[in-house]
Write a protein that binds this DNA or RNA. Structure first.
Lengths: 262, 262
DNA sequence: CTTTGTGGTTCGATTATAGAACCACTATTC
DNA sequence: GAATAGTGGTTCTATAATCGAACCACAAAG
């Protein structure tokens, strides 16, 4: 059994995103289809505890610095910066492009870490963004290694939302099979316009898919041919990343998706 | 009025720190002096919403990746990385030492951002750590610019906790006055053993203290004399930082401390 | 100066919560 | 190997916290 009140409180938190980082009380209540009274009470509690601040000029509510703290607790716990950063940095220097670590989290792909290239024109996106698994090389490479029943569910979801990446379910499944066999994938202008990426999958010790490692850059520079040249550099660090991620991602995290789908 | 249930839920979150990032159910309940039933119900809710994960091997609970996302929402909202990072990087390169941005948040000092030096021996601490305002250059420089009544309250708090930095209230107040007049401060082995730091205060447009900017390094390298050489580099960027932080920190954040103390 | 919008508050009827007592399980003790 | 003490997890009802219609006070717009 779970707590209704806490659940509502967390739904309120979920409303704060990079796109909508500040909310007026009544706006937020309408968006969540809740009474403004309860939203107000919960926000007051968050504010009391330092989790939310109210802009005194606009009266709008925003997430507090507390979340940076807690985010850091998670990051430290995962030891991401310590172990993975140096590898990603090396790949960024070796390829001259930005390097992206994507993981699978709750049916979606999540940019966990990005190390940017030194070049003035480079792929630069914000960590923490989620998107469905049928879009982009970094995500497709993950989807290709998921069990068929979960694949099927996610593809159906894509078809429902009329994803332009999917023609027919069958052709998409053939594509995924190809990606799985090839062991890497290249896309151009899928998730982001004019951005291309090469991705390889990352696994745990038992060969369960964990996420992917990608090199991303402007499509005029990161062409199909250039991607093939970059591939060996990526693959050079694949086992190393697998090893670290296996240690860092406890079974709990790995199974999270599976639990949700069962 | 605030919600008791949500308040309890947030107290549970507060228990997850860099030092204690994972908790067993009953341990946590004991620590919080709550019934394990309610802790369990709240944790289940957090888990359902992806805010907490349970390690399937140890059964212990940990904060979920969600907090990295929300932490990022806050960071994007504050535009810290975009605007402040380049300045701190320049100072780090110019001085060869790590650069620390500290802000005042709810009676305490909070390391908001650290750009590390390139040297192999360098000051390296985790962002998000809090400590009382009477310890260390970066914090004292903030305390020196707070209103007398708040200063007094914080010093009393330090005396209660037998802080070794404070001899008598009077002598400490004299020191703070000196720091305020001088406009900067240097300490060695205060917050961290063998670590020295030079700090300058940062203000908003109305000259309210917002935080401090520090250069920190090993005390054998960052001596008193070296600090004086570094000072001009720090001061060079002071107004620039003031300007950016004033824009970035809404009055809500600035007044947070004051509201709490009133 | 009425209307419609804020954010914030009040209070009683309703409903979700609290927590003792309970499993099922594991590890340790004697 | 029976007894004990520890896990995490669940059940159930008296009770206490929550919900939300109706209410401010205020601001902007018509």
């Amino acid at each position: 059994m779970s707590s209704k009140t806490v659940s509502k409180a967390l739904s309120i938190l979920d409303a704060f995103t990079a796109e909508t980082p500040s909310w007026g009380l009544r706006d937020l209540a309408r968006y969540l289809d809740m009474s403004h009274t309860i939203v107000h009470r919960i926000l007051s509690t968050f504010e009391e505890k330092g989790y939310v601040v109210q802009n005194t000029e606009t009266n709008k509510y925003e997430l507090g610095i507390k979340f940076m703290e807690l985010g850091n607790v998670v990051e430290e716990n995962l030891k991401i910066s310590e172990m993975i950063q140096p590898i990603m940095k090396r790949i960024a220097l070796g390829t001259g492009e930005s390097v992206v670590l994507t993981i699978i989290d709750n049916e979606e792909g999540l940019y966990l870490k990005i190390v940017e290239s030194e070049k003035s024109v480079r792929f630069s996106e914000s960590v923490g963004k989620r998107s469905p698994l049928y879009i982009g090389a970094s995500h497709k490479v993950i989807l290709a290694h998921l069990p068929p029943d979960i694949q099927s569910k996610i593809i159906d979801h894509g078809i429902e939302n009329k994803a332009r990446q999917i023609n027919t379910k069958e052709s998409f499944q053939v594509l995924l099979e190809f990606i799985k066999k090839q062991g890497w994938f290249y896309t151009s202008s899928e998730t982001f316009e004019e951005v291309a990426a090469v991705s390889i999958p990352l696994f745990d010790k038992k060969n369960n898919i964990l996420g992917s490692l990608s090199v991303a850059g402007p499509d005029y520079r990161l062409t199909d041919e250039q991607a093939k040249k970059i591939l060996p550099i990526l693959k050079e660090y694949q086992e190393n990343m697998n090893f670290i991620l296996s240690k860092v991602f406890f079974p709990s995290r790995r199974n999270y998706l599976m639990n949700k789908l069962s």
